[in-house]
Structures are given as C-alpha cells and as structure tokens.
Design a protein around this nucleic acid. Structure first.
Lengths: 253, 253
DNA sequence: GATCATAGTCGTCTGCCTGACGATAAACAC
DNA sequence: GTGTTTATCGTCAGGCAGACGACTATGATC
C-alpha cells in the first residue's frame, strides 16, 4: 500500500475525543466517562477512541457518539430535525506530551444534544455521566463525595473549555441553540437554553421579539403546550435558516 | 515508550498543510507549490509536510511557514506587530482516501501575511508562487499558459476554500485584517484589504468612521503618507483590541 | 500657476435594531 | 375569585449603519 518509506515519518495514533453538551436543569452539562485504566485511572475524561483504518474523522466521531449515548449524529450540512445531535469538528490537539504512553493526535469534535429523556450513557462497562461544565472545569466537588475534585484527564479540560467556548459563540450567530431542544419547543425553552449556555438572564420579551422576528429561524407547528406552567406557549420547530443575521447579542459581562 | 499494543490501533501519518493568504494587487492570494513527484506530479498544492516526532502541531506549521516564506509565525494570543504572520489552526482532514499512498491525516493551518516586499518563496528547489484564490479555486487559467487549469492536488481545494471562508468571516468580528497589512498602514490600505478579501466595495467614509471609532482597533502613529496618491493619510498601527464589537458588517450579496 | 484627478476626512440624515420596561393574556393553585 | 406563573404585544429612547454631501491636501497636466 505504501510507496512511502515508513521510516521517513514518525508514526502517530489518531483518536477522536468528544465534547458532548446538553442542557439539563438549567445548566450546561458535558458527557464525562471515568477512566478504568492508567494513565489517569479513576479520573474523569471526555469520551473518545481510536480512529479506525477505514473511517473518516467525522465517521469515527459519530460512531463514538452513538456508542456512548445512542445518539444518531447529524450531518452538519443538513437541517437538524429528528432526534439526531449536531456534530462538528472542533480542533485538533497534538502536543507531543499530551499522552504519556505515546504520540497521540486527537481530533476533538463538538456534539450538541437535547436533554435525553432516556439518557443511556453507560452502554459500556465504565461509568458515564452528565456533569455541569462548571464543575468539570473548576475541579470543584459539587455533590456527594469529592469524586469530582480531580481535574479531567490528559488535556481534556482545555478541549472541553474550547468546546464550550465554541458553543457559546456559535449560538450567537447561528440557529444552533435549537440543537439543544427537542424537535418541538417553545420560545421560553429556547430562551432557557441561551441562558444556560451563556450563564446570563435574558429579557423574555426582547428575546421573543428577536427569535420570532428573524425569518427562517422558527416555524410554528400550530400546537401549544403548557409544559412550564403559566399561559400555554406556541410550539415551534427549527426553521431552515442556519445563520442569524443580525446575530443574537450576548449581553456584556 | 509504548505500553500500547501497536497492533491495537492503525498507524497514521500526520502532516500540516498551510493556507497562506496575502493581499496582492487588490486580490486575495494564496501560496501554492508545484508538486515535484507523484501523486499529482506537476499539479499545484498547498505547502505542508510531516509533523516531526517532537514538535507540536503549531510548531510544525510555524516551521513549514518559515521554510516556505521566511515568515516568523506569531503566537495568536500575542498581538501582531513585527513582520510575523498570524497563524492559527484551521481544521483537520482525514478521509481515508485523501492520499492514495497511505493513511494521512492533515492538520490544516491558516496563515495571514502582509504582502511581502521581497517574497522569497522558492527557498526550496520546487517552484512556489502566490496565486489568486479565485484562480486556484475556479481552476481557471488566468495568465500565460494554462498551467493553472488543473485543480489543486489532494483535497487542497477544499482546504483552501475553508481557509478563505475562515478569513472572510473572521475579519468581520476581529482585528485580524491588520495581519494583512505592514506594521504601519493607512485606513485606506486597511479598507482595500477588506475589499479584496470580501470581494466587495466599501464606502470609504463609513469605513473610516467605523475603524477609527472602534476603541483599541487602531492606534495613530503620528506619521502620514501619500503612498497611494491623493491627500496624505494618517498612519496607524494595530491596537490591542482583537475582538470587534459590534462587528464590521459584510455587505449582503 | 491654474486646473484636474485622486484620496482622505468630517458631517448629516434616516431607518433599523436593541435594551428597558409597561401592559395584557391565559393557564394553574388555592 | 385571587394570586402566581409564563407568554406575548407595545412603546420609547439610544446607538449604529448605510447613503451621501462637503471639504481638504496632495500630485499630474497644461
């Protein structure tokens, strides 16, 4: 297969790591797996794995995503509709010392998923869970035990931070926030997504004006719901528009 | 070194490819090298090479950039000042068939450089040149001979297109356009950068108001010049601000 | 040296969008 | 019914962008 001299270049292992984000209970959460073996045994890490010989990077990421969550990844070029998650490449990390065992280059991907009604992380034997990104990044124990106190394995804290920042900035100028919502959702639910991702409070009236006034962003389905208590709200689907122009402005500080 | 079983994962070669952009004669141009060996012998390609065993991805990209252009790459976190070019990671391309010889994953980087007064591409033996991205992407011969008629090698057309799109969108909301300018430049020169990158005409008066009115974007150096004919213009340096808020709006269509 | 062409710089005006916030509507709990 | 909660519509002022007029300071041309 290779007219290349194998000694002419160094061999690498290539992996994909996943930053899988969702919004649960008004908090931005990421999927974390507990490592069962060294290095960093017992520490939390991002899900990921080796890229196989015959698959593209995106395929590998989609496969890992399905293995960990059962989510069907979406082609980013197609409009998000069914229960698939949004998946896109994030960045690649290749510091020679990022894995103590050998030279590993990791192509990180970002996935955005609605809050899973039946979250089935735990398909594999190792433990998997959703954790607030706040807790993962600040290395602060936030619940029972201090199992959360250790920072993420490898350079995964950096990868997670980059993924969160990508998500935060991308919902400004795209309709990507709808990827955090079920197929049908209300304006209030979409607003709570923005609030959770940005960690700010938004004015419900101005938000409503903005999202309903942007052509192609939301399509009314006709239904209404009263999920959140109070007056029933209109249900919407994500419209065809992917780019918001002008963008949704993130409040200062 | 490796507690990993080498048969447990497929071996990859990892390369960096460079999208080096500059503005010459009112046109956005990219650096292209002519391939001296198969595959795609004689075709134009993006500069690039293997990542070495002990270097990070960014280091490898900076090294390749220096080898091809003599440019000193800039840490993206530091403000661009001297004659260094802006360098940032673009995306990673890993289709199993993108290189017919073997499995190669390429981490593409984007570099933005001022028009080099003494362009010394040609350090290596193979031929190197600046070509308008328009011509490289449209596979249209535009000058003498039709040596330009063939599309770029590998998936480099896609990589170039992605890099150009990144540059186009990033100068909207950052001060990155100054990376295309010499250390001191006029408002008109900066405007011509925007016009070349976006391929549109901008109103000189509104542009002037916008860039001089955005705090931290431009710092007057006190000097004036008359490089372009007409009334002498004030000279500026890039200010400390990296993010433009509100952004520079790209005209529709 | 007067005139013209070329750029740069300062202003004005109008319309759109946003942020702040008042008011009304439609459900549920008691 | 009263209070609470959430959704939705309206109003108003300020900021910014697009369109464009006016003036300034150079070099080129006659």
């Amino acid at each position: 297969m290779s007219p290349y001299d194998p000694s002419a270049f160094p061999p690498f292992a290539v992996t994909v790591d996943l930053v899988v984000l969702t919004v649960r209970r008004h908090a931005l959460c990421a999927l974390a797996v507990r490592r069962g073996e060294p290095p960093f045994q017992g520490r939390w890490a991002l899900p990921g794995g080796f890229v196989r010989d015959d698959e593209d990077l995106t395929e590998a990421a989609a496969r890992e995503l399905a293995e960990e969550t059962g989510l069907c990844a979406h082609d980013p070029t197609a409009p998000a509709q069914d229960n698939g998650a949004h998946l896109e490449q994030l960045a690649t990390y290749g510091d020679p010392k990022r894995d103590p065992r050998m030279r590993v280059v990791s192509v990180a991907h970002l996935a955005l998923a609605p809050d899973l009604p039946a979250p089935r992380p735990g398909g594999d034997a190792h433990s998997v869970r959703w954790a607030p990104v706040e807790a993962l990044l600040n290395q602060v124990g936030y619940g029972r035990e201090d199992e959360q106190a250790a920072p993420l394995a490898f350079d995964h804290a950096q990868i997670l931070a980059d993924g969160v920042e990508r998500a935060r900035s991308k919902i400004e100028y795209s309709s990507l926030a709808t990827a955090f919502c079920p197929p049908e959702f209300t304006v209030g639910e979409l607003r709570r997504v923005y609030e959770a991702v940005w960690g700010v409070a938004l004015d419900p009236r101005n938000f409503h004006r903005k999202v309903t006034g942007t052509p192609g962003f939301l399509v009314p389905t006709g239904g209404t719901t009263t999920r959140q208590g109070g007056r029933p709200a209109q249900l919407f689907r994500a419209g065809g528009a992917t780019l918001l122009n002008p963008p949704m402005l993130r409040p200062e500080v």
